[in-house]
Structure formats: structure tokens, C-alpha cells
Design a protein around this nucleic acid. Structure first.
Ligand SMILES: [Mn+2]
Ligand SMILES: [Mn+2]
Ligand SMILES: [Zn+2]
Ligand SMILES: [Zn+2]
Lengths: 137, 137
DNA sequence: CTGAGATTTAGACCAGATATAAAAACATCA
DNA sequence: TGATGTTTTTATATCTGGTCTAAATCTCAG
């Protein structure tokens, strides 16, 4: 019988992994893998890029963080682990956490389509207050 | 004063562009740029890949088609031009058009956050009927 | 200690997407 | 109709996020 790991996780929370997880939490937003890499690298100069990718996906797969794709090329990682939605500024890219309850609609879809609905994510786009002011065209 | 182009478009609807647009419509789903390229190439053997990319984005920018990113790497193009949402099978990737009205929630968000909300898109994930049957693990 | 398995490193590799420059197609008008 | 400027296409190089691999390193139960 193997010893219980920290937090009962099915993988080792090594120095590198812990640093990556803490950086996602400390970043205070929705950082990209490259952001994490550059930041953690200052404490762990030998850290490899692949380790960041692998770890971020590992952490996401096990629910310690979430990963979102807003079609910008790079994924955005999120320290929040609960279901929630996002409001994105089309000008500056700022991401704000929001909450939209679609329980009703989800059940309706399930009946209408035969799909078993497991999750949903709403992406709302617009202009943040700052960018509204700056815009005139 | 320049002559009015077909449909009053601000660009020429050339043989290649027309073929690409028609293929998006004929594909009957949510094709990728590569799908369009391979298909149109059978009628236009000299068609370049870049022309497909440029044209798809051109058509999307001018509202003749839509473009969606489901985080699969390649974008999905859509002959529908009206706002709508998508139900995606996490197993086979099948995409079904659905409609979810978020007008109420959008107005609420606008007030709460100060953002001017311009658009939204709901991505619902689950298992399609076929894949439900095939799954047992 | 020691060896098997887990993890990290370093760098090659892949695909979608984008940029560029030259060639070709097209529109306009003398 | 032929000259000329503009738009579009082609062909190819380049960029970038992401993935893969193999060797080195680490960890821990025995
Ligand atoms: Mn978030
Ligand atoms: Mn659609
Ligand atoms: Zn903004
Ligand atoms: Zn399916």
C-alpha cells in the first residue's frame, strides 16, 4: 500500500509542481503558460518549458486549476476550481469572472437533443469601462 | 464612382472566393480550413492554402459566415450568420447548433460590471446519444 | 543502500496560422 | 484595344503554442 501523498493526490507534488501551482494562484488573473514559465523560472532557473505545460495540464486534469481557451492561441489558466463564466474585453483582453446559471436551459437541451450535458461555459464579449472611454473611431 | 459589386460587397467575389463560400455552405456542418482546402482543391487544383485562410477570415469579417474556436487548434467555420450556440460531444467532436437566450443575463452583467456587452456564445459539452451507448469504461 | 518507477530536462518536432513578395487577374480609361 | 494602377492569388518562409522523446535525475519502498 502506497503512502498517502500530500492532499491525497494521485501524483507527487514536487518542488516544481508546487511552484507552478502557487504561481497560478498568485498571478491573480488568468495567466498563460508562458507567463507562468517566465515567473517561476526566476525561482527555478532550470525549469523546462515542457514541465510547465505538462504540469498545468496535470493540475487541470485533476481539478486543482482550470484551463480555458478563448481563441487567442495560448490557453488561459485559472486558479478557481468552480464552474463559472467569463466576460472578455475585445480591446484589451481583460477577463472578468462572472456567473450565469443555465441549469434550466441545460435540462431542456438534454431532453431535446438526447445529449447528456456535462458542462457549459459562457463567453461574453464587449468593451470594458476603460476601453469604452478610449474608443471613438 | 466605382461599380457596385455582386451583392454590394466591399470586395470582389472571385472564382476562388465563391468556391470557398459555397463549400462552407455545402459542407453541412462546421468545417475546418483544412477541410475546405481539400474539398475546393478538387475543383481548383491551383488554390493556395493562404487563400483559404484569407478568404475565410474575409468572409467572416464581413458577416457572410461565422468563425468559432472550440479549443481544438483549428477554427470551425459556420455558414449560419445569426447568433447561436453550440453543443459539442466530448468524445466524437460532433457539433450541434442550439439556441440559448441570455438577453436578461447580458443586461444584468452590463449594469453590474460596466462593460458594454456586444456578444456572447455558450459552449455546452456532453456526450451525444451515439457516444453514450458506446461508453462503459 | 539499491533498483524500479516517477519526474524533469533539453531540444526536436508538429500544426495552425500569418506574413511576404512576386505573379496573375481585373478594372478603368485614353 | 492597350497602358496602367489596383486587387487578388500563389508559393513559400516564418511564427508560435503545443507536443513528443530520450536521457538524466529524483524518490521511496524494500
Ligand atoms: Mn475565471
Ligand atoms: Mn453553428
Ligand atoms: Zn478593455
Ligand atoms: Zn459523440
Amino acid at each position: 500500500m502506497s503512502a498517502v501523498r500530500e492532499g491525497g493526490l494521485p501524483f507527487r507534488l514536487t518542488r516544481q509542481r508546487r511552484a507552478i501551482l502557487e504561481e497560478v494562484r498568485a498571478a491573480g488573473g488568468h495567466p498563460r503558460a508562458a507567463d507562468i514559465f517566465l515567473q517561476v523560472r526566476r525561482r527555478e532557473p532550470r525549469l523546462a518549458y515542457a514541465t510547465v505545460y505538462n504540469t498545468l495540464h496535470l493540475l487541470a486534469r485533476h481539478g486543482l486549476i482550470q484551463s480555458f481557451d478563448f481563441g487567442e492561441g495560448a490557453s488561459r489558466f485559472d486558479p478557481r476550481t468552480d464552474r463559472h463564466d467569463h466576460l472578455a474585453c475585445r480591446n484589451c483582453g481583460r477577463l472578468v469572472d462572472v456567473e450565469i446559471d443555465l441549469g434550466q436551459a441545460a435540462r431542456r437541451l438534454q431532453e431535446e437533443t438526447g445529449f447528456s450535458v456535462e458542462a457549459y461555459h459562457v463567453e461574453v464579449r464587449g468593451l470594458c469601462p476603460g476601453c469604452q472611454r478610449a474608443e471613438g473611431d
